[in-house]
Design a protein around this nucleic acid. Structure first.
Length: 291
DNA sequence: TTGTGTTTTATTGCCTCC
DNA sequence: GGAGGCAATAAAACACAA
């Protein structure tokens, strides 16, 4: 069966199932013989140019048939019609059959056009609503994000305050209870002691018989030692031991934490057999001497 | 004037409800 | 099974910059 074509409101409509529903149940459906009876369009009332009528292909009339197959231009509703529909939509976005008929009559449109307009309008409204929801979500996300960033900043600030205070406290502690440890730095020189001891030991090794090599080692040990003493004197904090300058049981001479040396917290370990100045993750950073 | 993007009107197919 | 709603889409109308 050929698709039926209806012309109404200046538009062509090719339909299938909708035709049946319109023609059979839509109270606005008017038989052809009465097509023009009382159907004065909104445009005809001075708001536009389009005439309004319907046509049914089933009549077999060639003249009409020819008309159907000339696709009519789609026409937009006039400003007044749209405003009227908008007002109606504002009051209720659902369209009851009675209201549909009434609106169609008032606007000189086919009820189906009114229904379609409402359907499209609902779709637009839904899209707008989605956009609005999205914007709202975006806004609250941005607020939360800003809040979070403020908290992180505040946390960092508090953290550095805590670090500063602990440094002060440790220095204070050092000043009051560590007079003996400053002695240990200035007098017995534990590192030097070990270095000297080690050097004297090493003179008995095979390498020690090489005068130039031993001299070089001594020189390097002195450089390392002086560098350490310099750093200890200027800023860093002892990790807690060696107050009397003696060696512990594992032969560790000293363990010192040096905050913020070149951006690292440097750990310096020295024992009887080695002098190691290392950076985290770099075992060979400053050199490693084994005897 | 024309090309292009947006809006509006209308169609189609699917789904749900009664 | 018919009526109507909705999502996706087509296509005409419109807006606007180049």
């Amino acid at each position: 069966m050929a698709a039926r074509s209806f012309l109404f409101g200046g538009s062509v409509m090719l339909t299938n199932k909708r035709v049946h529903s319109s023609s059979a149940a839509d109270p606005s459906f008017v038989p052809r013989s009465s097509a023009f009876q009382g159907m004065l369009s909104f445009e005809d009332q001075g708001n536009g140019s389009g005439g309004q009528f319907w046509q049914n292909e089933d009549n077999g009339d060639d003249e009409y048939d020819e008309y159907f197959h000339q696709p009519e231009k789609k026409r937009r509703l006039t400003g007044d019609q749209v405003r009227f529909l908008e007002k109606s939509f504002e009051s209720d976005n659902k369209l009851e059959p009675e209201r549909k008929i009434q609106l169609a009559k008032e606007l000189g449109l086919q009820p189906r056009q009114v229904a379609i307009w409402f359907q499209n309008r609902r779709a637009r409204w839904k899209n707008k609503q989605l956009e609005k929801d999205y914007d709202d979500l975006q806004e609250s996300y941005n607020k939360l994000k800003a809040n979070y960033e403020d908290l992180v900043k505040e946390k960092e600030k508090l953290k550095s305050e805590v670090e500063e205070l602990s440094d002060k406290m440790m220095l204070q502690e050092k000043g009051t209870s560590d007079s003996s440890s400053t002695k240990s730095l200035s007098q017995p020189k534990p590192c030097q002691h070990v270095v000297e001891e080690d050097v004297s030991k090493n003179t008995n090794t095979g390498y020690g018989q090489n005068g130039n090599f031993t001299e070089k080692i001594n020189e390097l040990n002195n450089v390392v030692y002086n560098s350490l003493v310099e750093r200890v004197d200027s800023s860093y904090v002892f990790e807690q031991e060696q107050s009397d300058g003696s060696l512990d049981e594992e032969n560790t001479l000293s363990k010192m934490l040096m905050p913020n040396v070149d951006g690292y917290t440097q750990k310096i370990e020295m024992d009887r057999n080695s002098v190691y100045l290392g950076l985290p993750g770099d075992d060979q950073a400053f050199g490693f001497w084994s005897y």
